[in-house]
Amino acid sequence: MAKEYPTKISARDFSVFYGPKQALFDISLQIPQNRVTAFIGPSGCGKSTFLRSINRMNDLIDGATGQGALTVDGIDVYDKSVNVSVLRRKIGMVFQKSIPFPKSIYENITYGLTLLEKVSRSELDHIVEQSLRRAALWDEVKDRLHHSAMGLSGGQQQRLCIARAVAVNPEILLMDEPCSALDPISTGKVEELITELKDTYTIVLVTHNMQQAARVSDYTGFFLMGRLIEFDRTRTLFTSPAKKETEDYITGRFG
């Protein structure tokens, strides 16, 4: 695998257990910086579990434990010295079900910013505009920044969640099936956005939609039953998969 981009996230023999049940088996991979990496696979295959391990959202599940090494910038995220809050600010996350906070659009964007320190009003205004522009939402909402975010359409809400995530200036964006609840037009907008954002962020995308992975990602990993079957450049994986399981899956023979 040629590597013109440095590694941002790296896993070595990384496993996850939910109580006695093992959910991930010895995952080893390297996710390059400033690229879009997609994880595909049937539901329950472990792709979301792996994604949620990167910013330690699995910590929230009672009885979840990890094993092996998972590093971001060479630091093991499960190391005792890691401050989970800081880690999560460096790693933005966009969820499948986009729920804005039931606050105004403006407050949704500034929520993450004001958690740690006081930020001046003018700086907040600036960041709100910048984040909304990045999420390609500015023109649609600039006149109603102080209206409730619940009034936005589904696609707008998802882009607001992206804006909310980028507002804290992360380096990585984790996206957990961000388009599964959206109509085709909104999906198109979000995909376009993902392509634009990869210059600034390292993006990891979980999707059940193979076409989407083929369209927007540079690298793709295929998960099956908690194991990483294959990880390669997207074009390689889709045109000449090395493993039989991958071929079966992408040609639609199962899953």
Binding site: G74, S81, N83, V86
Partner: peptide, 10 residues
């Protein structure tokens, strides 16, 4: 030097 992740948060 500590990585930013490792800033202690008190």
């Amino acid at each position: 030097m500590l990585h930013p992740f490792q800033q202690p948060q008190r």
